[in-house]
Simulated scan of single mutants.
Amino acid sequence: MVESNSIITVTWCIKEKSRPWKYCHIFAGIDEIKMSIREELFRIIGRDANGMADSLAKSGCFPSQMLFADW
C-alpha cells in the first residue's frame, strides 16, 4: 500500500499518461515494483493522518538522510 497526501502524485502512479516526462526514470522503477506484486493500492491520505511523512516533508528530508522503518 502506498499512501500520499498528494492527489497529483497518486494520479501519476496510477495513470501513466498523466506523468511528467522528466520523472520517467522514477516511474520506471515504480512500474517495475507494481508488476512484481500481486495487489497494489494507492491511497490519498490527509496530512494529519500521516504525521511522520508530513514531518519529514516539512523538514526537507533528503535521500541521504532518510529513515526507513518496517512495521
Rank of each mutant, 00 (worst) to 15 (best):
G46D: 08
I8P: 06
R38I: 11
D70H: 14
I30G: 00
K17A: 08
E3R: 09
N5Y: 09
Y23M: 12
D48L: 08
G60N: 03
D48I: 09
S64E: 09
I37L: 15
R19P: 00
T11P: 00
K22G: 09
C61A: 07
G51D: 05
S64W: 15
G29F: 07
I44P: 03
I14T: 10
I7S: 15
S4V: 00
F68S: 09
V2H: 05
G60I: 01
M35H: 12
A28T: 14
I37E: 13
S59N: 07
D70N: 06
I45V: 15
G51C: 08
Y23K: 08
A57C: 14
C13K: 02
I45M: 07
E3W: 15
W12L: 00
A57S: 12
G46R: 07
A49G: 10
M66A: 06
S64C: 12
C61W: 07
L41K: 04
S36G: 12
I30M: 09
W71K: 11
A28I: 07
T9H: 03
D48F: 08
M1A: 08
F27I: 05
G60M: 02
R43T: 11
I14G: 04
I44R: 11
Q65Y: 11
W21T: 06
I30D: 04
S55P: 07
I26N: 05
Q65H: 11
I14Q: 10
E40P: 04
I44Q: 14
K15A: 09
S4T: 06
Q65D: 14
W71E: 14
C13H: 06
F68V: 15
N50Q: 09
I44G: 09
P20E: 04
W71P: 13
S55Q: 15
T11L: 10
K15I: 14
N5T: 03
K58D: 00
S6V: 03
I33A: 15
W21N: 12
E16I: 14
V2A: 04
M66P: 01
E39H: 13
G51I: 08
T9V: 11
I7F: 14
I33G: 04
A53F: 01
W21C: 06
F27M: 06
S64Y: 11
R47W: 07
A57M: 02
I26D: 04
M35D: 06
Y23W: 14
N5L: 02
R43A: 06
C61R: 05
S64H: 09
P63G: 05
W21L: 14
I14P: 01
F68N: 11
W12H: 01
K22Y: 11
G60F: 04
E3C: 13
D54Y: 02
G29D: 12
E16N: 12
W12S: 00
A69Y: 15
L56Q: 03
K34G: 01
I8G: 07
E40Y: 14
M35R: 08
I26P: 00
C61L: 09
V10F: 02
Y23L: 15
